[in-house]
Design a protein around this nucleic acid. Structure first.
Lengths: 133, 133
DNA sequence: CTAACGTACAACCAAATGGTTGCACGATCA
DNA sequence: TGATCGTGCAACCATTTGGTTGTACGTTAG
């Protein structure tokens, strides 16, 4: 039971790292590239307007989060994305959405009315293209 | 920042805010609670070992990310979660996973071999229960 | 052998984060 | 009316983040 401390789960820190890694446009782009095809660190670095070291640090963050792996290849490092942690994050989000659906169901059960108005929740960003559910 | 290629969408900043909001155990817990049932800010604050102001700031972060909304109710504020942005995040992750599947397919197409070994990608955290895909 | 390349890493800096305390203000209760 | 409660916000502080430059070290090319 989550009485006081939210520090319950042992992998909460891993989730922190996961979502933190995803919370940066450059890192999401690196992830996209390496998801699509392997790349070396300098190939990645050449794609962005920042120093090599900056990109290398982004790669480290992604690696720490378990979203990519590097394998030595001569003097280069081949960067490869791992969809496992991605699936983990998606799983958590689905879990949360299910939690919401449960509340909805409970309401429907208690009051047999068509459920609490369902106001569209003012979105702070464009209406969502929402590609693949 | 991010000048060369990562200029995919105009809402990259919104995604930054979204994932950043999710990258904190306390905020994920607040989200869980409000997803499950509405709560006031002080009800939430009472659940954690930190000051009211700290929790209030977490609530602001979640609100900015569009993950929750507050509605005035007398002198209290009823905090309600919105699953829309959650779905948005999940959609992006699915998109990324699809990208990876595409690479896989391309490989299978080019070389008709059973595809690149598929090394398990050393996970930095427990193997994933992976609840609802 | 020597030079250039790809990578890693340290030191440094500005800005953001996450926490604190304190105060102001409207709503509620006695 | 006056005290109290719930909330928002500002000021402050320590730590982290995201960027820089510079350096070191193994690998490859000439």
């Amino acid at each position: 039971m989550v009485a006081r401390s939210p520090q319950a789960g042992p992998d909460e820190a891993a989730l922190d790292a996961l979502f933190h890694a995803l919370a940066d446009a450059t890192r999401r782009d690196i992830l996209r590239r390496t998801l699509h095809a392997e790349a070396t660190v300098s190939e990645l670095a050449a794609a962005y307007d920042m120093s090599f070291a900056a990109v290398q640090k982004h790669v480290v963050v992604l690696e720490t989060a378990g979203l990519i792996t590097k394998t030595a290849a001569g003097r280069t490092r081949r960067v490869r994305a791992c969809p496992d942690q991605l699936a983990r994050a998606r799983g958590l989000l689905s879990q949360l959405e299910a939690l919401w659906r449960d509340r909805f169901d409970r309401l429907e059960e208690l009051l047999s009315t068509p459920a609490e108005a369902s106001e569209p929740c003012p979105s702070p960003s464009p209406p969502i293209p929402n590609s693949s559910p």
